[in-house]
Simulated scan of single mutants.
Amino acid sequence: MRASIGVAVTGEQAENCDAAELLRRADVAMYSAKRGATDDWVLHRTEGDLAAAGT
């Protein structure tokens, strides 16, 4: 079994982020994690929808 996880958090940019946007960002991060060869998690970065991988 494999798992790919996308993480999105609010913070300084919270005023620009409703629930739908937060889910969209988590989705972007999840698909970025799925592109990897192994089980992984990715944290969404708001700067241009970049995602940073973690292990």
Rank of each mutant, 00 (worst) to 15 (best):
R2S: 15
R2W: 08
R2M: 06
A3S: 12
A3K: 06
S4M: 07
I5Y: 07
G6P: 03
G6F: 02
V7M: 14
V7F: 07
V7G: 00
A8C: 13
V9W: 03
V9C: 09
V9R: 08
E12V: 10
E12R: 10
E12F: 12
E12S: 15
Q13K: 08
N16K: 08
N16G: 02
N16I: 11
N16F: 10
C17D: 05
D18F: 08
A19R: 03
A19W: 03
A20V: 04
A20I: 11
A20H: 06
E21S: 03
L22R: 00
L23D: 02
R25T: 00
R25M: 04
A26K: 01
D27K: 01
D27R: 08
A29F: 02
A29V: 04
Y31A: 02
Y31V: 09
Y31C: 10
A33Y: 05
R35K: 11
G36H: 11
T38Y: 14
T38H: 11
D39N: 10
D39F: 01
D39V: 04
D39E: 10
W41Y: 13
V42L: 07
V42P: 00
V42D: 03
H44L: 01
H44N: 00
R45P: 00
T46V: 12
E47R: 11
L50S: 09
L50N: 09
A51L: 02
A51H: 09
A52E: 14
A53H: 06
A53Y: 07
G54K: 13
G54M: 15
T55M: 07
T55F: 01
